[in-house]
């Protein structure tokens, strides 16, 4: 298990993390979502030893992720970083060596990965001569070249074209099949929904929702009700017991019902306003779950 446990971090008076915790099982992919500035990057940087937490720790297989253990982690930082003047093949081999491979193994692994990511012909070119998409591939090669036991990737998909997204997704699924726990952050929630076994949503310094997308959906299903009442005045549903207005736009209303709230009472109230053109339980997409989780003032997560 890769465990993030009770991470706290403040920068001056800005409290970024207030007890972030989640776990990722070997061979699963964990999608890490959150608004800009929610603390995703800080969480990952803590795991990589680049930021020291005020409290909490990150563990791999039960022991703290220290410098030695971190050499077995493949990491892709949010701000991509490579030596601009170093040749592709040498650069990947250098990172392999920093992760503990000997010279011969590093050279071999580097040429395998450079080939595999379609950079074979660019092996001898300095990185700065490559397109951004190809630089990103070198970055991925640098993260994967040492056969890491864990992968931590900060926004790996940003800036990739659809073909690049597909090939990166394929590479990550490959790693998962090898038994590697993969954590990645992304704003592309459709991608997270498609790839990830489980999802964590970070807001206000905490994980506000975590579980498989199915679990999150099941937890939410039956609780979100969409009612379209074109003639209703604003806040028509306000004051109904156990009902919270999630959104309301020209009568298109999304309501969240507490477990004991009576949907029939809502329907009655809706009919009372005039025409009812739509009344149904919502199957929320991850985007909606995300909005819901990020907006909610109280914790939703189990």
């Amino acid at each position: 298990m890769l465990e993030f446990d009770g991470l706290h971090k403040s920068f001056g008076s800005n409290r970024v993390l207030e007890g972030v915790g989640f776990a990722v099982a070997p061979g699963t992919m964990f999608g890490f979502c959150g608004s800009n500035g929610a603390g995703k990057t800080t969480t990952m940087r803590i795991a990589m030893g680049l930021v020291r937490p005020d409290a909490g720790e990150v563990r791999w297989q039960g022991s703290p992720l220290d410098l030695d253990a971190r050499r077995r982690v493949g990491y892709m930082p949010e701000e991509r970083g490579l030596y601009p003047k170093m040749k592709v093949g040498e650069q990947v081999a250098y990172f392999a060596r920093l992760h503990g491979l000997d010279a011969a193994a590093a050279t071999r692994a580097a040429s395998v990965w450079v080939e595999r990511l379609g950079l074979g012909e660019r092996r001898g070119d300095p990185v700065e001569k490559l397109s951004l998409g190809n630089q990103q591939r070198v970055q991925l090669a640098a993260a994967l070249v040492s056969r890491p036991e864990v992968l931590i990737l900060d926004e790996p998909f940003s800036g990739l074209d659809p073909v690049g997204v597909d090939s990166l997704a394929e590479a990550l699924l490959d790693q998962c099949r090898r038994g590697v726990p993969v954590v990645f952050s992304s704003h592309q929630l459709d991608l997270v929904e498609r790839l990830c076994d489980s999802v964590g949503i970070l807001a206000r310094g905490r994980i506000v929702a975590t579980g498989t997308v199915e679990e999150l959906r099941r937890r939410e299903t039956g609780r979100l009700l969409r009612v379209v009442v074109p003639d209703a005045a604003a806040h028509w549903a306000a004051g109904l017991p156990g009902v919270r207005i999630v959104s309301e736009r020209a009568g298109d209303t999304l309501l969240e019902l507490a477990a004991d709230a009576d949907d029939q009472a809502v329907l009655a109230a809706a009919v009372g306003t005039g025409r009812v053109t739509h009344f149904a339980w919502q199957q929320p997409s991850l985007v909606e779950l995300f909005r819901e989780a990020v907006a909610a003032p109280q914790e939703v997560a189990a």
Partner: peptide
Amino acid sequence: VEEKSSRVVELLLATMR
């Protein structure tokens, strides 16, 4: 400065002090 401006330092410091 090259290591800082190219941000490669973040990758380096993940493996060394």
